[in-house]
């Protein structure tokens, strides 16, 4: 066991961790932040995506000890200070960018990273960026539209745009 201290969603936390404890295990089991999900064990599905020091990281492929001293943000820290959905979250709801919701936290975190790097991504850029986030429900159609909308771009196709 070793001691780690990190900032999670703005709050400083210190805990003892096992050497082989993954960041996602630390978040889910020690901090009970269960919004970050585990959907695979080969670092491909992206359901566990969080931000570590502002960068998109798969929390299942980094040890908690390696995040010692880091700033970590998770899906639980994404809403506006008043508790309302942030722009990306709201766009996902408005454009039906989620169904079962399991991949959604990772998608929202990936979308936030994308828009930070590329504020007005094209459809192809969004699809390329989401290579590491698998969704089985939506066919990605409405996820792409939600991210376009969150970036302030017009979206086409689907019931909402047709109205």
């Amino acid at each position: 066991m070793s001691d780690v201290t990190m900032t999670v969603n703005g709050k400083t936390v210190s805990r003892a961790v096992r050497g082989n404890e993954l960041l996602v295990e630390f978040l889910r089991e020690q901090l009970r932040l269960t919004g970050t999900h585990v959907g695979c064990d080969t670092s491909q599905c992206g359901a566990c995506c969080v931000h570590v020091n502002g960068e998109l990281v798969k929390a299942c492929t980094i040890f908690a000890a390696e995040a010692d001293g880091a700033e970590v943000s998770t899906i639980e820290g994404q809403a506006n200070p008043d508790g309302s959905l942030n722009v990306i979250q709201q766009a996902f709801q408005d454009h039906h960018g989620l169904q079962c919701g399991f991949c959604t936290p990772g998608m929202v975190m990936a979308a936030a990273s994308l828009l930070k790097e590329n504020p007005k991504p094209s459809e192809q850029e969004i699809r390329h960026y989401l290579q590491g986030n698998i969704c089985r429900c939506t066919g990605y159609h409405n996820i792409v539209r939600a991210i376009m909308a969150a970036s302030g771009q017009e979206v086409e196709g689907g019931a909402i745009a047709a109205e």
Binding site: T34, G35, T74, Q78, L85, F92, L98
Partner: peptide, 9 residues
């Protein structure tokens, strides 16, 4: 969606 989007499912 609100609970799924905020990690509270």
């Amino acid at each position: 969606d609100v609970r799924f989007l905020t990690g509270t499912g």
